[in-house]
Design a protein around this nucleic acid. Sequence first.
DNA 1: CTGAAAGCGCTTACAG
DNA 2: CTGAAAGCGCTTACAG
Lengths: 341, 341
Amino acid sequence: MKPTVHDIARHAGVSLATVDRVLNGRAGVRGITRQKVEEAIASLGYVRDLAAANLAKGRTYRFSFVLPVNDNSFMIGLKREVEAAIGRSAAERTHMDIIEVPAFDAGALVAALEAVMADKPDGVALVAIDEPRVRACVERLADAGIAIVTLVSDLGASSRHHYAGIDNIAAGRTAGNLMGRFLSKVDDRVGVLAGSMMVRDHRERLEGFLSVLSEDFPQVAILPVMEARDDAGVAEAMVREALRRHVGLNGIYSLGAGNRGLIRALRDLAAETRPVVIAHELTTSTREALVDGTIDAVLNQDAGHEVRSAIRVLKAKADGLPVLAAQERIRIDIFLKDNLP
Amino acid sequence: MKPTVHDIARHAGVSLATVDRVLNGRAGVRGITRQKVEEAIASLGYVRDLAAANLAKGRTYRFSFVLPVNDNSFMIGLKREVEAAIGRSAAERTHMDIIEVPAFDAGALVAALEAVMADKPDGVALVAIDEPRVRACVERLADAGIAIVTLVSDLGASSRHHYAGIDNIAAGRTAGNLMGRFLSKVDDRVGVLAGSMMVRDHRERLEGFLSVLSEDFPQVAILPVMEARDDAGVAEAMVREALRRHVGLNGIYSLGAGNRGLIRALRDLAAETRPVVIAHELTTSTREALVDGTIDAVLNQDAGHEVRSAIRVLKAKADGLPVLAAQERIRIDIFLKDNLP
DNA sequence: CTGAAAGCGCTTACAG
DNA sequence: CTGAAAGCGCTTACAG
């Protein structure tokens, strides 16, 4: 049988309370006593039963998710995943809430985080804005002993404990590699449709994309970046304009949101003249476009995985336990029409 | 506060034992009493604390992993992942063991499963061989109330409860799509290197690969399949022979193991004359070949995910709980040199 | 500095 | 058919 605190107490000739003190590193135990207990722990190969400990402590975890109010499919899906997790959390002694803040507004994000801090939760997950004030605020949360996980978009050098999201430079590089290989190789010109260069993920994707093209496919010409602010209408207009202006626009990398607009613009083209298109995030519209051939590949991050991973990590951090890096790595899914889930 | 069994007992005016009987659907409760308790449960919105229940019951889970003895990197890695999970299981009231059986030997697999059944574990995970005797045996295990998960390789129509592995037809289709697009498009010939057509995953990958090529890239010619029995030496010889015989062999899809041999054969070629190569499973050697350009893409299944997923599912089945399909779906990883983990 | 006792939310003999 | 009491492995006041 697995040894319990009773076994340790008996072996060391002390009471349960003393075993507990040693086990939890609490003060008020004589050196010799502590040693006896530690020996018993080691020789019995004791492993604490966390579930029993949590039951005794009445321990519950309290986590807050700070999410941007954003009407794109990905963010809506992300929020839905958090809600689903909340729905499942009743059985798990975990209380979670969602705090919504205006998108791309560092001030609002900081204010929300300050309010959350006053509530002293065990952990906070946030879609970060990479900005000095936000970094400073996260620092304060960490100092207050709150576990911090950035979600989807990371913070530069900061004291967040973990990032639950994809490597966006690698994502951009992957898009560049696929684009280079999918192109016909003669006189190729490629357009990039982005949301905003203010956001770290978009900057990083662009950086990765450009570096692979220049390293491995130097013959490909790249047009100036179109910033459509993740707005489908703007994206549509910009893509139409680009197609009109640049004959031989054979490739488009859409690294932000607003793909509905992009797709509308592309659908008007004859199938043979359509450019190679690589986009991000699998949504109803990108999935459809993948199936009918309007889009050639979709890079995706799985919002459900990100949320579940964030919760696992938050819990581990709250318990001072290690996280399983391999399990928590968020992968860049590459979807072609043939491996859609 | 979350309601407990005490709250229900008080509300219904019964004892804890009766509440427990109703909660666990045990017999020996009068209709009216049961009804009172059920009403209390519903009106209080009671959710059972599984951890507390397991503690009280002294419940431990016992699972067996039946794995083939196989010296390829993937199977070695799979076993290592199970061992890692066993290492972590001490804290989780879970006992797991590994039973090794000769590879590709249905009789031995059945014998091992029968032995496992005598031990009456809560669940079994096995790398299946798709064979009538195995299916019948799995049927018996399921009838004995043992949860069954197939791992990596599935069983045809059978009563296994879950399959923790990738969709191999989709994997083959994905390989076909990438191959078609990566090829230069003029006078292409493609070779397929397989382990054995006796194994279901290999058959399915081939099927998917061929169907995409014939549907979407009909101009590509496909050479007869090389069956190298997952042996690096055999694979090397076969690939060398094929390269010698078929001028214009521009693509190779390696859908089984033995990639070390394939890579050796390819490394002798001048970089410009190397075919497009798509292989399965990220190992030390395929990773290296991806980085140096010998291999163009690697399709991968994450053995760690498969093992952790199998355990989660086994536990859920043992508890009669639903599984989160989206979480347990094993994805086909596509690795290019730019998105290596 | 140390221990006896009660309790977390649930289940299990046992008695009636 | 129903209930009182003890116990799972741990923690927490409280007393000494």
